[in-house]
Design a protein around this nucleic acid. Structure first.
Lengths: 250, 250
DNA sequence: TCAAAGCCTTGATCTGCATCAACACAAGAG
DNA sequence: CTCTTGTGTTGATGCAGATCAAGGCTTTGA
């Protein structure tokens, strides 16, 4: 999400800390902004998750993913988690124009990305007003995707959710120029479950079921081959991709 | 959603067909754009829902709700429905910058609204570049709300969903200057169910249960009195309103 | 005033997915 | 090599909410 290749290249010119491994940035932050307490080092070691920021943090940076994958998520007090989106190379993170992030973000694999201060974005926007329209376009796409996800979470069965998910990933891979029938699943089963509103067990069972029905193949835990795209679309409910034909009324 | 009082007043100056009852607009459209076949009349009679537009229709108009309520929704081929948002007076509809609407919209009560052509919006945006930023701000709010809704649909129980829903409506009423403890429910139980990913029976039972627990009162079918706001927030999971305290890391 | 049609509520039963539990497998670490 | 730890799969059981069913209340209209 928040993906826009062209805008990316334009912004990258202004990006100063590009292609840093997420963990490196964490260390850098430790030195720069806090000063290197032993406590902090321990904390970072104790939390092996490569966290980018948490919900409620001051939204002072904009991120651009340059490699790997990132998840955006929200938590309930008791730990239940909902992943609201996955981000891959080229996608933007932290674009929402709020003072504080309204969600958390962390890497699902060793992600590389670049970040730069929000105030520079403001300058950039004033300098190139066309950016504004592009941002709006991006937000608009985000919103449409969010609505699809609501339909999925509110009304689709487990099988329909998995099928929709695979088709979405496939489409995004194709848009990034890759083949569409071999889908990469860099995230864990837990991540998939938290994205689709299911448990890891249901995710696993549903993959197995789709395999038995010969709609997909599972060469490895983190890759899926789509054998029967039409069948998968049929299962998915089909509407996330193709809007239902407009009713003729009026 | 899409609510912005100030922007509203500015735009309204450019609005030409203001405060028309939705049904009137439908009739007008019938005459203008089709020509008044007897067939069509029958069709409209058979479909008493006051539909504004359907998913996939050309997105040639922007709407501003001036009274009553409107729902935005998506459908699956077999008729399952997910309402993605309710709109009330002052809210905008159809702002997404796509060629076609990515969802459908219809009135939940006799709604009044005004509409004007999208190309006029473009002109307006060029004329007042500040609008662009405001639109972006609005879209950004929408996105945050959508993420809250995903958390609700993916991870909350029926009781938590209803509680969150009531608190949201209450907050919106307060923002519109009304009292916060008496909440209006202009929509049907079916609409609430389709918004929260539940059945009408579960919605009804959950209201009854909250009443028995003396958290709310139900003076009428379409109104709720919040007796114990803290208790309701407790049930809601509380996070939709108040972000979880930022984890200290880094 | 009564009939018909819509909503809403409530009760009984069913079921898809969650939960609980056991095990398989791969990757490090010692 | 074995032990440990993390991650995924598979099976058995339980339950929240769906489905099925019946009845009440309100509105509309003749």
């Amino acid at each position: 999400m928040f993906g826009s290749r062209q805008f990316t290249s334009e912004v990258l010119e202004h990006c100063q800390t590009c292609s840093i491994r997420l963990t490196s940035v964490c260390s850098a932050l430790k030195e720069e902004e806090i000063g290197g307490l032993a406590e902090i080092t321990t904390l970072i070691k104790a939390d092996p998750q490569e966290t980018i920021f948490y919900e409620g943090d001051p939204a002072d940076h904009l991120f651009n993913v340059t490699g790997g994958g990132v998840s955006m998520f929200k938590l309930l007090p008791d730990g239940r988690r909902q992943i609201t989106g996955f981000l891959f190379a080229g996608d933007f993170l932290g674009l929402a124009l709020h003072d504080h992030y309204s969600y958390s973000a962390e890497a699902i694999t060793g992600a590389t990305f670049c970040r730069f201060p929000r105030n520079k974005l403001e300058v950039l926007l004033d300098k190139y007003p066309k950016f504004e329209k592009r941002l709006l376009q991006t937000a608009s796409n985000e919103l449409a995707a969010a609505q699809d996800q609501m339909l999925l979470l509110g009304r689709k069965t487990a099988q329909e959710r998995i099928a929709s998910f695979l088709l979405n990933l496939s489409q995004r891979a194709m848009r990034r120029g890759q083949a569409g029938d071999k889908v990469d699943l860099p995230m864990s089963r837990a991540d998939i479950g938290d994205y689709l509103g299911l448990t890891i067990e249901t995710v696993s069972r549903t993959f197995t079921r789709l395999k038995k029905e010969e709609v997909i193949e599972l060469p490895g835990v983190h890759e899926v081959v789509i054998l029967d795209r039409a069948g998968l679309q049929d299962i998915a409910g089909f509407s996330a991709e193709d809007p239902v034909a407009a009713v003729a009324a009026f």
